[in-house]
Amino acid sequence: MKKLFTLICCAALLGGLAGCSDDDEGEGVLTDPEALIGKWQLVSNYYHYYEDGAWHTDEDYNVETADYNDFDLFSGDGTAWSERYSKQGTLLSKHTPTSWSYSDGILMLDVYPQEIRVLTETKLVMCEYDGDTIGEGDYEEFIFVRVN
C-alpha cells in the first residue's frame, strides 16, 4: 500500500511538471525592447468583434492570398515605420516614421497602445483595440514573422 501511495504521488508530481503553461509551444512575451528591433513581415491580420451576443472574427489580410507584402520596421533609435511591397518586390508605399517604446507588454506607437501577446525571436503578435482600454472591446490582431 505504501508503494502504491508513493507511485501515485510520483505520478501526480510528474503530471504537474508536464502540464500546460502560459508559454505553450515556446511562445511567450520577451520583455527586452531590443527584441522588437528589426524587420517584421505581416502574415495575417484579423478583426475580432462582438455582435449579436457572440464573438466573430474576420480575416483582413493573409500573405498567401494578398497581392502585396506589408512590413513593420523597428529601429534602435526609437523610430518605426511600415512599408508595402508588390509581390515582385517593388516598393509601393512607406509610411512616415513614428516613435515607439515598449514596456510591460505594451508597445506604444506614437500615442497608440498595442498589446503584445507574443514576442519571440521569430514571431510577433500584437493587438490594437478600438476603445481606449487595452483588453476591452473589439480589436485587430496582427501576426508577424521576423525577416531580419
Rank of each mutant, 00 (worst) to 15 (best):
residue 29 V to M: 07
residue 46 Y to F: 11
residue 143 I to E: 05
residue 32 D to A: 14
residue 73 L to H: 06
residue 40 W to H: 02
residue 43 V to G: 04
residue 118 V to S: 03
residue 96 T to N: 11
residue 31 T to G: 06
residue 104 D to M: 08
residue 65 T to F: 00
residue 109 L to F: 14
residue 47 Y to L: 11
residue 24 D to V: 08
residue 21 S to W: 13
residue 109 L to M: 07
residue 112 Y to T: 14
residue 147 V to K: 12
residue 63 V to D: 02
residue 138 D to R: 01
residue 35 A to Q: 08
residue 72 D to F: 00
residue 28 G to A: 04
residue 121 E to H: 10
residue 17 L to V: 08
residue 38 G to S: 10
residue 140 E to M: 07
residue 10 C to A: 14
residue 11 A to W: 13
residue 74 F to C: 09
residue 21 S to M: 06
residue 131 G to F: 04
residue 23 D to G: 03
residue 119 L to Q: 02
residue 83 E to Y: 02
residue 98 T to S: 07
residue 143 I to R: 04
residue 16 G to E: 04
residue 107 L to T: 08
residue 94 K to S: 14
residue 64 E to L: 12
residue 87 K to E: 00
residue 47 Y to G: 10
residue 110 D to H: 08
residue 11 A to K: 05
residue 9 C to A: 12
residue 138 D to P: 00
residue 57 T to C: 10
residue 24 D to G: 00
residue 75 S to N: 11
residue 4 L to M: 01
residue 74 F to I: 02
residue 148 N to F: 14
residue 24 D to M: 11
residue 140 E to R: 12
residue 119 L to D: 03
residue 110 D to C: 03
residue 44 S to N: 12
residue 138 D to S: 03
residue 91 L to M: 14
residue 13 L to N: 06
residue 3 K to N: 11
residue 137 G to Y: 04
residue 120 T to S: 13
residue 111 V to A: 06
residue 141 E to R: 01
residue 144 F to H: 13
residue 68 Y to V: 09
residue 111 V to W: 15
residue 138 D to G: 00
residue 31 T to C: 06
residue 82 S to Y: 09
residue 92 L to M: 15
